[in-house]
């Protein structure tokens, strides 16, 4: 019996060796050998879609990828639909990802985890802002937190498109740290970031938490006022915008976006994308894209991204477990 198992083990090891050898041989010579599909797990026009098309253009115009590239939109379930689709594809499909990949699973909305994919790169971060209407009597971030601390239900907070996203998490996190009973907070959930902005502009809500890129333009126009950001440095467009750090709360929170492929990609395939993306983030087009979107460059290659996702996953898990449990 023992000998059999041993033999079987050897046999399997041998077979795997052969398979690996085949993989090496074909991968090295041919990858990529077909159309590349960039999956945007959202409707056309959203942040993910913009990122996907930006990547496609940059790679194409700089001749970094010679194969044809298509962007396919798979909206739904906060990224779930697109990522389920990606998990079924071969290594010629890649997809945009974000922290939702981690929180969807932690909040019981998805079976998928970051371990079901091969992270290829982390590309950019953007900061999250807390904004109030231009005519609001809330003076700054601390003023808002003090009011919530006194009565958590005193302010209507707008968020979109769902509880548990980065905008929501970062807000809860800061409030929790400040000593607010976050379980009492009243969030109004809007369908999209655009709706949140509309609600804020219309004065339907007291406070809104949303991506800086979504609020910056209206802030610069004076239609709303940004009272805090999760940034760790001044915002170039308006250096007077205060971060939480500026207001004495040691809290930063980057909302990151990256790119990943299906599970079980070979070393050669990973090396190909490491090479491609490291060149892409150096190009002018990419710089322009980041500037237009209000994003910061945050490039990590495959190895860096794997490590980063692991860290982030732990961070989110702790955040979800501890938030609201402090009372």
């Amino acid at each position: 019996m023992r000998r059999n198992t041993k033999f079987l083990g050897l046999l399997m090891a041998g077979m795997m060796g052969v398979l690996a050898a085949c993989g090496n041989a074909s991968g090295e010579a041919e990858y990529p050998n077909g159309n590349i599909e960039i999956v945007a797990p959202a409707t056309p026009g959203g942040g993910w879609d913009t990122t996907a098309r930006g990547i496609q253009n940059t790679l194409d115009e700089n001749g970094l990828v010679e194969e044809n590239m298509n962007v396919s939109n798979k909206p739904g379930g906060g990224g779930e639909v697109g990522w389920q689709y990606l998990a079924q594809q071969d290594s010629h499909a890649i997809s945009i990802n974000s922290s939702l990949l981690l929180t969807n699973n932690l909040l019981g909305q998805s079976e998928l985890t970051h371990e079901d994919f091969t992270p290829l790169a982390t590309l950019a971060t953007e900061w999250i802002s807390v904004a109030v209407p231009a005519d609001s009597d809330i003076e700054n971030g601390i003023d808002m937190l003090d009011r919530l601390k006194e009565d958590p239900t005193s302010l209507n907070i707008a968020v979109g498109p769902a509880l548990g996203n980065n905008d929501h998490l970062s807000f809860v996190s800061v409030a929790d740290e400040y000593g607010v009973d976050v379980s009492q907070l009243e969030f109004m959930i809007y369908e999209s970031g655009g709706d949140v902005l509309t609600a804020l502009l219309g004065g339907h809500v007291d406070v809104a938490t949303m991506a800086l890129s979504e609020s910056l333009e209206q802030h610069l126009n004076g239609e709303i006022e940004i009272i805090a950001t999760t940034a760790d440095k001044p915002i170039p467009e308006d250096e007077s915008i205060p971060s939480w750090q500026d207001q004495g709360i040691d809290y930063t929170f980057p909302h990151w976006r990256g790119i990943m492929g299906p599970a079980d990609m070979t070393d050669e395939e990973i090396a190909y994308w490491n090479d491609t993306f490291s060149q892409m983030v150096e190009t002018e087009e990419w710089g322009t894209l980041l500037e237009n979107q209000g994003w910061d460059d945050f490039y990590l290659d495959h190895e860096g991204s794997v490590e980063f996702l692991e860290e982030q996953d732990q961070m989110y898990e702790e955040l979800l477990d501890t938030a609201g449990m402090t009372e």
């Binding site: 932690l106 909040l107 019981g108 909305q109 769902a162 509880l163 548990g164 929501h168 998490l169 809860v172 976050v182 379980s183 907070l185 979800l320 477990d321 938030a323 609201g324 449990m325």
Partner: peptide, 17 residues
């Protein structure tokens, strides 16, 4: 009172078992 489990649902909209 919301406990460690249902608080997550209350706060973040989580589906938990």
């Amino acid at each position: 009172a919301y406990d460690e489990h249902d608080a997550k649902t209350k706060l973040f909209g989580a589906y938990l078992t």
